[in-house]
Amino acid sequence: MDQDERLLYSSSFGAAAAAYAEHRPDYARAAVSWALEPAPGPRVLDLGAGTGKLTATLVALGSDVTAVEPDTAMLTELRHSLPGVRALSGRAEALPLPDASVDAVLAGNAMHWFDMAVAGPEIARVLAPGGVLAGLWNVVDDSVEWVAGLAQVSGSAAIGPRDTPAGWRTATADLHLARTGGAPRFGSPERAGFPHGQRRIADSLVSTLATRAGMLVMPERERAAALTRIRAFLASRPETAHGEFTLPMLSSVLRVRRL
């Protein structure tokens, strides 16, 4: 994805901020705890915080959280739902924080939107020595037969290659920032996945998939057709046709330490 495409996709969420806040899943608490495990202290930056899905879990774990988010509508939702959290407007490439001011930087379903060549040094700048950088992604568990079928029917705009465990590992292979500008800033990456799930009904799962960036930037006619296909698939499956069900997921984590 080139820079213009990244900007188009990453800026699409504001128009659906309320739906994002209502329908997107949180993160497995065990995944967030693992991400923070090596951090030297409790000061955490939630970068690309969106509407606060990851922020809320960090608060529940007792972290001293600062949230940074570039989109005004998303930031408004976060401030509404978590009024006690320090929430700032800003981008990964130009962080509104002083040097060595946080012990961990976490990004929930956001790191792939960053220009890492610029964001890497910025993240290293605000991290204290020995601090942790971790990206978290919720991916669907396509080892479950009906979930694999859903991914196939939905298409890459709704469930892309990065949204399954194997695809996620490939897509994040170059995101660990082992070297930036020839100088090492971060150590070797560690990865882990933690079981997670989201209680849904068919309509709310359709609404969740509709908040994916690929869906949001689609022409309206194509988007409506894709959502119709998804609804028809869910109606055809015994696992999802009647009442509530759990969407099987993993909260997958990529973790590195600042040198």
Rank of each mutant, 00 (worst) to 15 (best):
F13N: 02
N138Y: 12
A67H: 09
G120Q: 04
R257H: 00
A119D: 02
D4R: 13
Y20T: 14
W137A: 08
S10C: 06
S188M: 04
V147I: 07
R86Y: 01
A210I: 00
N109D: 12
M74C: 05
R231C: 09
P38N: 08
A157L: 03
F13Y: 14
L259A: 03
I159V: 15
A39L: 01
R162L: 07
M249I: 05
L47M: 06
G120T: 07
P248L: 12
M74W: 06
A157K: 11
L175F: 03
A173Y: 02
L234G: 14
L78F: 11
M74I: 06
I159Q: 13
A30C: 10
Q3S: 11
T170W: 05
A117K: 09
A17Y: 14
L75Y: 05
T66H: 04
D26S: 15
E37M: 05
S156M: 09
P238M: 04
T51N: 04
A178M: 04
G62W: 07
L75S: 02
R221C: 00
R125I: 07
D71H: 01
D71F: 00
G167R: 09
V105E: 11
P161Y: 10
L175C: 00
V217F: 09
A17N: 05
L95S: 01
E220W: 01
V32S: 04
E244V: 01
V59N: 05
P121I: 07
L216T: 02
P40F: 09
P83S: 13
G130M: 14
E145R: 14
A28D: 11
L259V: 11
A107M: 03
A87C: 14
R79L: 08
E69M: 07
L78R: 08
V118C: 06
S33C: 10
V102H: 12
A192Q: 15
T76A: 15
V32K: 08
R79I: 13
A56P: 00
D115V: 01
L58T: 03
R162A: 14
V206T: 13
A104M: 09
G50W: 13
S252F: 08
S89K: 14
S12P: 05
V139P: 13
T240N: 10
G62D: 12
L216C: 01
D115W: 00
L58P: 00
G90H: 14
D141E: 12
H242Q: 13
